[in-house]
Amino acid sequence: MSERIPILRIGETLLVSVQFDLEDQMVLNLQEDLAEQIVSKAARGVIIDITALEIVDSFVGRMLATVAAISRVLDARTVVVGMRPAVAITLVELGLSLGGVDTALDLEKGLAKLRQPTSSVLR
């Protein structure tokens, strides 16, 4: 069983919208699929929409950080959008501050962030 989350492409941006609670294997599959598609589609940006996610535990949190790092190495940028306030509070208290992961409040702001010059996004 290896269900996969669809990755959409809009121009140079890959868009993933996580719509339901993921099994660990699906989380790992997503990480690999994104790395592959950044290269095969020559993407410059990745948006991961987690609006629908009610929780982000350390496993998913680590995936988000890993995708951000992988995309950086592959000359692309990742923005995580739509994190719920309760999820943000819980993640920080859990001890995961997602350093190195760019975030935006919604898809529109995330796309705008990707359009900014690289220097203003990278820390």
């Binding site: 496993f59 999820v87 509070i89 819980t90």
Partner: peptide
Amino acid sequence: LVDQTKMITAASELAR
């Protein structure tokens, strides 16, 4: 809602 989220997250960590 915040406490629900915390409890579910803690349970997910411990189950793993």
